[in-house]
Design a protein around this nucleic acid. Structure first.
Lengths: 199, 199
DNA sequence: CGTAAACATGAATAGTGATTCATATTTCAA
DNA sequence: TTGAAATATGAATCACTATTCATGTTTACG
């Protein structure tokens, strides 16, 4: 199970942050297994042993990052959605997409870290997606009671949506080293909108 | 670059196949990094050194599997599609989905092997998806000239489709340890159909 | 201040696991 | 049948890397 020692001084906080930032960068660039402890401590400019002041092992650090990034992303999406007065599922989804892509840009790490988590800690991996899925399921059923969608299977659609976002992000950020433009986002919104809307 | 020594005797052929089968199983269960050479040779019931008769190293074996599985999947999809008289993009896509899921069931390995290839060999990983994407792009543009689709961005949609299939397979095969039923497949066909069809 | 707790250090350890290689066995074409 | 090529063996090697720990430094609070 994930464990972080909470620092008790300002210095400790700074050090922990340096380690996490370095780890996020490296895990996302090279992956979990190819990233060495020495790489992380060197980039963070601390001694090897310092990492073990905060984390009992490499896996705990990985899980800590994954957990933190997942929480952050969910919070950002939730906040952005609640600020929008148009509560139709399509408008809300347009916001989701924008926040997701902008989050991937800012934390390119999350994306790649989660991608490989399947082989690092399967339970954490499953948990990550099931949480997002649950959010979608709730929204889709609410939208359906409002008559906004056809009678779709919300579980299937939730994974379809996550797949779309993940792969389009993969294409843009990883393969093309660019990022989705407005036209791309509109393509996705339209595709999804026609895909789930009531006829 | 990937390299396999082609066996020159019956015995050699059998041995190579045993090694590949064992490796597919193990890579897909535990991932590339967690799979040890000893695991593979033990499951294949050959000595450690035998693996190195056919592959110069672990990575070559991985790339060989990935390449072979990708080719096989593309061929199966192509064959199944060509056997279908209804050439509308939706019908053709329904076939794609079915073949894909049945392929994942038979070669659960492919799916997980490719998933993690991003951190093993990025070029091979990109190449794998770009090839499938190219196929979709061709079909979507042909379908558009026949008036079957809206004026969609075929590149974006190609990655959206691959994302949908990959994530729904993830949900069913990996998380639920079951497989997509007909209702699920119809959900996907409808979603995609409404999503791209001309209005 | 003074000092106990918190934090930082990095060389040493200890375990791992991919790869090698000298040797033995099997195949198959002539 | 025969021997040269092909294949198989697995103990030994060797490089690599996560983790430890004894020691030194810094913090913060009474």
């Amino acid at each position: 199970m994930e464990y972080v020692k909470q620092p008790k001084t300002k210095r400790g906080e700074k050090t922990l942050k340096k380690i996490c930032d370095a780890a996020e960068t490296l895990f996302s660039q090279k992956g979990y297994y190819a990233t060495e402890i020495k790489d992380i401590t060197q980039l963070a400019k601390v001694a090897t042993g310092t990492l073990y002041v905060y984390f009992p092992d490499k896996l705990s650090l990985f899980l800590h990052l994954m957990d933190g990034l997942g929480r952050k992303l969910r919070r950002e999406i939730r906040d952005a959605k609640s600020k929008c007065t148009d509560t139709s599922i399509i408008e809300q989804e347009r916001i989701s997409i924008r926040v997701f892509f902008s989050f991937v840009r800012a934390h390119f790490g999350l994306f790649r870290i989660v991608w490989q988590a399947q082989f690092v800690d399967e339970a954490a991996f499953k948990n990550y997606y099931e949480r997002f899925s649950q959010g979608y399921i709730n929204e889709i059923s609410k939208a359906h009671t409002r008559g906004e969608t056809r009678n779709v299977d919300s579980t299937v659609i939730s994974y379809a949506l996550m797949g779309i976002y993940s792969f389009v992000a993969l294409k843009c950020f990883v393969f093309d080293k660019s990022e989705p433009d407005d036209a791309t986002i509109e393509q996705l919104v339209n595709f999804i909108s026609f895909g789930i809307s009531a006829q």
